[in-house]
Design a protein around this nucleic acid. Sequence first.
DNA 1: CCAAAAGTGTTTTAGTTACACCCATGG
DNA 2: CCATGGGTGTAACTAAAACACTTTTGG
Lengths: 244, 244
Amino acid sequence: MDETTHLERYDPSAFERPSVTVDLILMSVIDGVPAVLLMRRDEAPFAARWALPGGFVGIGESLDDAARRVLADKAHMADAYVEQLYTFGAVERDPRMRIISVAYFALLPADRFVAALTATAELSLAELTVPWRGETGGPVEVRVSGDDAVTLAFDHGEMLGLAMGRLRGKLDYSGVAFALLPERFTLRALQDVYEAILDTRLNKPAFRRRMLDRGWLQPTGEREAGTSFRPAELYRYRMPQEEQ
Amino acid sequence: MDETTHLERYDPSAFERPSVTVDLILMSVIDGVPAVLLMRRDEAPFAARWALPGGFVGIGESLDDAARRVLADKAHMADAYVEQLYTFGAVERDPRMRIISVAYFALLPADRFVAALTATAELSLAELTVPWRGETGGPVEVRVSGDDAVTLAFDHGEMLGLAMGRLRGKLDYSGVAFALLPERFTLRALQDVYEAILDTRLNKPAFRRRMLDRGWLQPTGEREAGTSFRPAELYRYRMPQEEQ
DNA sequence: CCAAAAGTGTTTTAGTTACACCCATGG
DNA sequence: CCATGGGTGTAACTAAAACACTTTTGG
């Protein structure tokens, strides 16, 4: 075995190589419900099943570039928050051939998510019902436009569970929540995002103070419009000094 | 571009594929100092530079299996705690050809780490000086057996920084610290591991209570031997119900 | 002036830190 | 009986939660 490893070091081109793809878990929070972008497969394997958008990684293309390309080409969405999640490398994960897939997760505010969705026929929004299983993530129940729960193609269900776990884990110590909100937003909207992702009710005054004390929010001086009650202040996310 | 993606879906074998490797960041805490396993490269590129052990992923081998194989073959260590870290996919990260590398980090107790190290000539232990830069990790200074700081081959320095950040981030909410200790250990030994990794001094009574209140520690009833003062109780790590 | 949600002040609680102290052991 | 680190009790501090309350808007 040591012999083989040694040979590989010298001439790796002599060995059969796996294909490498990226798969994209593009999420948002729509009307207080976590949502993910799915595409319906129209060929085997898993024909007519729902799957995450993905694509092969080009030989001269970095993984991050491939993820952004899939985001632009398949999902027709640009400038999302994108982060590498995990790499899935089980031998039999694709029945056709050996494919290693690097999963990326991406976040978009509801308005831009819905806009891109309605502009593109073959895409579909799926609502997520997410039982709390800690940061590691676990099985996630997926409903496409109100229908019954569906099972995703390949190991995409596992990817989705992991993405949801990561989102929950990072929610409170990073700025990911703001990637799900428009540039200007109210504290109530921020709390709605938190409640949707964590699947809990939060105490309003406590939440409010916690957020303001962190110093990440900049009051714009402007107010929300079109309410029949007292309009809330609009805030802007100001990235803290230490990046990410 | 959409056209290309479509074609790839049908016949990916027609496209050139990258090689895929795993690299292993095998860490321990030796005498209160974080340490990592390195190998000296004896061929170009980066000849005579220090690098992480790694190897190509076989076509019929899962990523996790490849990581465990590298652990066994190159590092001659079995049964370590192993966890996937991140996948590095920059196009020019290896000057010879396109190689995508999945980084794994592994943890071993000091005694087993040192035993395997002394049994194998081509391995070397490197001490780490790790400035605190939050969970994301950052540049790490590496010293091989007391010499000056060295720069690792390829992007291995970046991998090491990320591994250290992950270790710090998970230290306090997961059981990773116990992967760095023998089966039976004192509370002082546990605190030493925390202090080495976090690079801080911790308050003894507070640490003690926090650990015991968590319910992860099982008193064995046995005592540490060979001290010239009061011998400390030995504890065992009892995995909590919810895995990881 | 009423409904509805924004926004604030005050108390309670829980978890952590700091510090002082006692205990057990080998020499 | 002394030095050394193990182990414990108590008070102080801090951050968050709970709850009651006041404010501001449109209709």
